[in-house]
């Protein structure tokens, strides 16, 4: 990367430095969620169609978020904001419900008990992701757009 920042500086910072580690962990999480939900749907979908459909949706959201973090442009930036926000909302809502109303979630999903099955990464990653997205918007880019 050059010393003088190109016009689309925010696009570069999004994929630079610590952002790359974030993308890598997201990719692994997406892969893990996809694998597990494929297994659940292939072998025991009828046990808990809602929970396993939710797992699949969550997995797809991780995939889209990973792509959105890598892909350049303001639209993808917005996609990243939306998908990562949905992840955070999902893990919080399902996390609380699975603890206080376990009847609703007798089967494991990615988000059950705040993502315990995945080392709590589903809870930690969207928080880091949102912090990173906020930080990677350079002052110039913020001045130029009103979201």
């Amino acid at each position: 990367m050059t010393a003088t920042r190109p016009p689309h500086a925010n696009e570069h910072t999004r994929r630079s430095g610590l952002g790359r580690v974030l993308i890598a962990v997201y990719a692994v999480l997406a892969l893990a969620a996809l694998g597990r939900s494929f297994f659940q749907i292939a072998t025991k979908f009828h046990d808990a169609p809602v929970a396993y459909a939710l797992s699949a949706v969550a997995a797809l959201i991780y995939v889209v978020a990973t792509i959105a973090l890598i892909a350049p442009g303001r639209t993808w930036m917005r996609v990243a904001w939306v998908t990562i926000s949905i992840e955070l909302a999902g893990v919080l809502i399902v996390g609380f419900l699975s603890i206080f109303l376990p009847v609703l979630f007798p089967h494991d999903t990615v988000w059950s008990v705040f993502g315990r099955g995945y080392l709590f990464l589903p809870l930690v990653m969207p928080i880091l992701g949102l912090l990173w997205l906020r930080r990677s918007r350079s002052p110039l880019a913020v001045a130029g757009e009103t979201r």
Partner: peptide, 23 residues
């Protein structure tokens, strides 16, 4: 346990170090 589940983990696991290495 389930051999299918085992293989999903194994194949996913194989992708990870190769991906990181190319990166």
């Amino acid at each position: 346990g389930s051999l299918l589940e085992f293989y999903i983990y194994l194949i996913s696991a194989i992708l990870i170090p190769f991906g990181a290495g190319f990166w």
